[in-house]
């Protein structure tokens, strides 16, 4: 039905001819943005209600003094449902390590939280189908778990800024919310999040539509296809410094894949963009010494590259 509406607006109302580049690009743009915003609004609202049951204070308590492995798996999973904004990364990090959450487990959470979330899930599901969405979630969790375990094994506690260990952390009572308050919170959260990500979606879908309409088919197959062994590391190296949320990057990678970029390369690029970024490094610099920061970025980048190769080989 959305497709018909998009066709109607583009070809009947605006009088563009089907099959022309401009017509196809605009049709694609209208169809994709409406579909994505409908999906986003519904699912963010539902997830926000679930999230009210997992405030970071509770997640911290669930993870404190957990052993490695079990702790890493749990932390990566909780990363999906615990609300997290990069501006809270510092208090969150201190709160975790101070209450006895092992360092490696803390990192599993920090990696999974921005990378694996409802926005990524919806956008992937809407544009690529549920299989790719599940593969992304699964491999994102795997990267978070494995990178966290390795960082834990490296015993890098002394590369956390010294003041972090001396900090006195108070205890807050978590205020219980009524269901009405939860609904109210969810409404506000949905509104705030949509307000934040809509420009990314528009720009992302716009660029995607441009690539869709104007870049020749199989244009990327030669360089970014599965036969080029350097495609994955290059995609990761390009993605790491970039900052965008899943909402902006997925429409672009969708169009890139259509033009012949291999699926593993696409997933690796997306993970690199969402999991690691320059602004995040600057924020984390407040709690991590350079060495640990470099190890963190290095290990996650390598893990993402391996995931890229894996999916290029098996899909």
């Amino acid at each position: 039905m959305l497709k018909q509406t998009a066709d109607y607006i583009t070809f009947d109302l605006l009088g563009l001819t089907p099959g022309t580049r401009l017509g196809e690009a605009l049709d694609f743009f209208i169809y994709d943005t409406t579909k994505i915003f409908l999906l986003l609004t519904t699912i963010i609202f539902v997830v926000a209600i679930i999230r009210t049951s997992f405030p970071p204070e509770k997640t911290k308590r669930l993870l404190s003094h957990k052993r490695e492995y079990v702790g890493n798996v749990l932390a990566a999973l909780l990363g999906i449902v615990t609300p997290f904004c990069s501006c809270s990364a510092v208090p969150l990090f201190i709160g975790f390590v101070e209450s006895g959450v092992p360092l490696g487990v803390t990192f599993s959470f920090l990696i999974s939280s921005p990378m694996v979330n409802e926005v990524a899930l919806i956008m992937l599901w809407g544009l690529f189908g549920w299989k790719i969405a599940l593969i992304y979630i699964g491999s994102g969790l795997l990267v978070a778990i494995i990178a966290g375990i390795i960082i834990g094994k490296l015993k890098m506690e002394k590369y956390v800024q010294d003041y972090v260990w001396k900090m006195q952390v108070g205890n807050t009572e978590i205020v219980k919310q009524t269901f009405r308050q939860k609904l109210e919170y969810a409404r506000e959260y949905t509104y705030e999040l949509l307000k934040k990500i809509w420009p990314y979606v528009i720009v992302g879908v716009g660029l995607g539509a441009f690539i869709h309409g104007f870049v020749p088919q199989d244009f990327l197959a030669r360089w970014a296809g599965r036969d080029n062994p350097f495609a994955v590391p290059i995609a990761v190296a390009l993605g790491v410094p970039l900052y965008s949320n899943a909402a902006g990057v997925i429409p672009i990678v969708h169009a890139l894949m259509e033009k012949g970029m291999a699926i593993g390369t696409v997933l690796a690029f997306m993970m690199a963009v969402t999991a690691l970024s320059l602004p995040e490094a600057i924020i984390l610099k407040n709690v991590l010494k350079n060495r640990l920061l470099a190890v963190f970025f290095g290990i996650v980048a390598i893990a993402i590259t391996l995931v890229g190769y894996l999916f290029n080989a098996i899909l």
């Binding site: 405030p55 975790f96 205890n171 009572e173 506000e188």
Partner: peptide, 29 residues
């Protein structure tokens, strides 16, 4: 950050009235 952590707050912004945390992680209206 020391004072913020002193209240045990892990997501900002938070609102404290007479030493009691009322909201955290949300911009209350």
């Amino acid at each position: 950050i020391q004072k913020i952590m002193g209240y045990g707050v892990m997501s900002t912004p938070a609102l404290v009235v007479d030493g009691v945390v009322k909201f955290s992680g949300k911009c209350a209206s």
